[in-house]
Design a binder for these strands. Structure first.
Lengths: 209, 209, 209, 209
DNA sequence: CATGAATGAGTATTCATTCAT
DNA sequence: CATGAATGAATACTCATTCAT
């Protein structure tokens, strides 16, 4: 062990171990985005690295495990951002506004992640899909926050269940529409969704396209 | 060929041909609803009929083909209903209202179909539903109608793309929430979605839960 | 379908089906005898036929299933012979004598079967081994007959458990010794074992080598 | 090399070397007894020590090698005991008697060893035991002693081959039956086997169960 | 000599599809 | 047109062994 390695607190072996794990994750990200979870095989992933097939199993138990790791990483990050955004809101308007802005900006900034998500919306998608478990959790968290706000009288009393899933549905579908447009305009998408939820379409035609 | 068959306008062979096709479709409906598209095998389907495995390929080219046929059947029916509902609308309010009422009632009345859709919705929490293709077509039709109405000055000028996908997103997600509730209340769901789109959440708290 | 096939009551397809099953069983017999159950792979078996790998699974669920079929065939046959031999016995002497003669002659007449048995006495042998389950069953049957005879006063009261397993132990080990000798002398082996059980070694030296 | 180590006559490295070897052997004993030779993997063994997988190969060439070492250890001990027991015999009766008593007592006193043997006996109901090799050697030694005694006129002239394997067969099978009974009665088993070999079953019913 | 990560050959099994009958 | 046996490509995963550190 050289002095440098000691100084860094990690041996070459440890460094290498982390590199390999990252290499597999990175390859998986690409392959899942390209083929989708269902069509992806472990061999597809490992073929994109310079590792041997058995090595895969030194780092992940199965295809599902890498996929899980990948989606957890993304899901945790996005959920944290959304949670923080809601926490900053001082009223209902901000609650809605912050949520949409945060959500659309996240994907607009990370198109590769969007590709991954998009590819795994296919028919063969595995249950623990990115938006499967993670999205459900995200919605649950939002609902909890919303009900708390209702109890505090901060926001109007509405059917929290319907409102929550509606926000989710709009977020997902408007995100897709936004990502298909050029140039990317996450803030425009967010303004649209916010206005829709706050005052509906009735007054929209006037000053906003 | 017997006289009776001639009378019916079709040979025995033709009748039988249709029966077999229907038997396969019916079996597929059940199996896809139970296992989902990904996990379903042709053998699963054929096992539920009294036909032989090879016979499947006399009627459908592949698993995908039978799935397509199934979803087309449903999609065509639902799209026709929605199209008719929109045609009856005399103003924007009715446009939105008729759409949601039709959509939610359709699934509330056909829970088996919902099961099929549900088992095969993409796992993105935004249930892009029913093989995506059909839903995409449905949205396109709605968008066309909407743009026409905008051109005619019947409804306010809004971003038709965002509005369309938003209506889809809300329809899908509120439908799922509705189907999970007991008793089924498609009209309640439709009222919620309609009010959301027409006037937003702001005024909701007052007279509606 | 030709008239001949109809006359035989079986179509060519049925005949073929049986042929294939037999081909697999025969190949398995050879391979198991050569490699033993543990080292044998399904590929080894199928390679010895002119069938495709998948075809194996049209006839047997797994390697264990063929092995089971093979050992059951042998075990059932031998157990039936032994059971019949015991049934003919009018006294204890004949009970012992008939058992050993039947047993040793069986293997002397079927050396290929002996090879199969022998090869699957190895360390990796699979629990359901020929002599595992089948031999246990054979001993149980013998014990039952013996206890019945004891109850009827036909044979002396002895520790049936020890006697049964002793007869089994002697049968197995003397069989191996007999099969290693040339020329094969099953009757000599049977006479030895019979005398051992009836009067012990004490009086043996006199007239018998 | 410290003075202490020198005093002990072995370097630290040598001591450690022996410790590691013992640790592996001990772990192997447990695992083989639990899983059997076939199902045991090198990783199973090494996992039960605090050594690394590569270290295994510094001490044993393969799984077979460690198994060999284990069975040799046991086999050598048992064979030595049996050899000594036979040497003490002054006549044929004692030859047989001493052999069975020694054999049954050995296993009755060391149930863990029996478990190891049991888990790894061949699955032929005739438990050719302990990797076969050791048992074969033991029988060969017995046969040599027996033939010498025959030549000296001490025991009756019998077919030494058949007698030897018969004693082995009875020893193995009666041992199993004995170990399955409770309480353990090695002397009862030895008396049964001895009487069987000396005077057969004929006279047994009288005074012995 | 200890470590433990990397290796990659090896196996059972599934399943969509074909095609002789 | 129905049949259903045959096909064989394809995949996930294990494990003994090696070797750089």
């Amino acid at each position: 062990m050289s002095l440098q390695q000691q100084a860094a607190g990690r041996t070459r072996r440890e460094t290498n171990r982390e590199n390999n794990r990252d290499a597999i994750l990175e390859a998986a990200r690409v392959v899942f985005a390209e083929l989708g979870h269902g069509a992806t095989t472990v061999r597809d992933i490992i073929r994109r690295t310079d590792l041997a097939s058995g090595t895969f199993y030194n780092y992940f138990e199965s295809k599902e495990a890498v996929y899980q790791a990948l989606t957890d990483e993304i899901g945790n990050e996005l959920r944290a951002k959304l949670s923080a955004a809601r926490a900053k809101a001082k009223n209902f308007e901000e609650f809605v506004e912050n949520s949409f802005f945060t959500y659309f900006r996240y994907y607009a900034e990370k198109p590769q992640i969007y590709n991954l998500v998009r590819a795994n919306r296919t028919l063969d998608a595995f249950p623990s899909s990115l938006s499967g478990q993670q999205a459900q959790n995200g919605l649950k968290e939002m609902r909890r926050d919303m009900e708390k706000a209702m109890a505090d009288g901060v926001i109007p009393q509405v059917d929290a269940g319907y409102v929550t899933v509606s926000m989710g549905g709009v977020a997902f579908s408007v995100r897709d529409e936004m990502m298909a447009r050029n140039p990317l305009d996450p803030d425009g998408a967010a303004r649209f969704a916010t206005r829709l939820f706050l005052s509906g379409l009735s007054g929209m035609g006037d000053d906003e396209k």
